[in-house]
């Protein structure tokens, strides 16, 4: 008997059920997978945009807001210069395609390497409840851009803000079907408290997460 069969049959024996799953068991599982009920949640009675901004700050991100995508380069430049950060960045192609000429920021549309200091991304969705950014992997939404650079700037159109993680899954299923290879949720900069329980920002991922909300 393979390990697989041994384990599965041990579980079935321990459960005190027949050797093979019955129709009733399969039906129970299918019913749950079809219904995908949303469990008990805390009250979500806040304005999603306000909540998102507030929770971003709570998770130690910084937040800015602009009216249109065309204002994003200037907002990035403003942030980088006020934080005394380098005026050069790598970005997702969609972001790199904005008009950066007047901003003074040199933006390259390529995946981040270990030495890139600033990464600019969009997001797939954003979650108001916890101030969370959601990324889906794809040929043009490089995972490393939000991970390797010391500073991560995320551009969040107001229309992608959903109340909670459940709504994010629901919308993702409807819009993309199967999940992509990687769905990453990011809530603020990287941190650790592994030495003496003291909080340190910037363990392996970015030290800074700056969120630019567009269209608020």
């Amino acid at each position: 008997m393979s390990s697989r069969e041994a384990i599965l049959s041990r579980i079935r024996k321990a459960r005190g059920v027949a050797a093979e799953p019955t129709g009733a068991e399969q039906a129970r599982i299918e019913a749950h997978l079809r219904a995908r009920p949303i469990s008990t949640r805390p009250s979500l009675e806040w304005n999603p945009l306000e909540r998102f901004r507030e929770q971003c700050v709570r998770m130690s991100s910084t937040v800015d807001g602009v009216a249109t995508m065309s204002e994003v380069p200037a907002a990035v430049a403003r942030y980088l210069s006020s934080a005394k950060l380098p005026m050069q960045a790598v970005a997702w192609p969609g972001i790199a395609a904005l008009d950066w000429s007047a901003s003074g920021v040199a933006v390259e549309g390529r995946p981040a390497g270990g030495d890139d200091l600033v990464g600019i991304t969009g997001v797939h969705l954003a979650i108001a409840e916890t101030g969370t950014l959601m990324f889906l992997s794809s040929p043009t939404t490089y995972a490393a851009t939000s991970l390797l650079p010391e500073t991560h700037i995320a551009v969040v159109p107001v229309g992608v803000i959903v109340p909670a993680m459940e709504e994010a899954w629901d919308r993702t299923r409807r819009e993309t079907g199967d999940l992509p290879r990687a769905v990453n949720f990011v809530s603020g900069p990287s941190r650790t408290a592994d030495i003496e329980g003291q909080l340190q920002i910037g363990a392996h991922g970015p030290f800074r997460v700056h969120v630019i909300v567009v269209g608020a």
């Binding site: 409840e129 995972a143 199967d178 290879r181 769905v183 990011v186 809530s187």
Partner: peptide, 24 residues
Amino acid sequence: ATGQSISNYISVNTGPKQPGDADG
């Protein structure tokens, strides 16, 4: 665990790198 409303990173991984993916 840590008194956070959510942990900073959650990775949901489904299979290896897809054709054309830059990383994974």
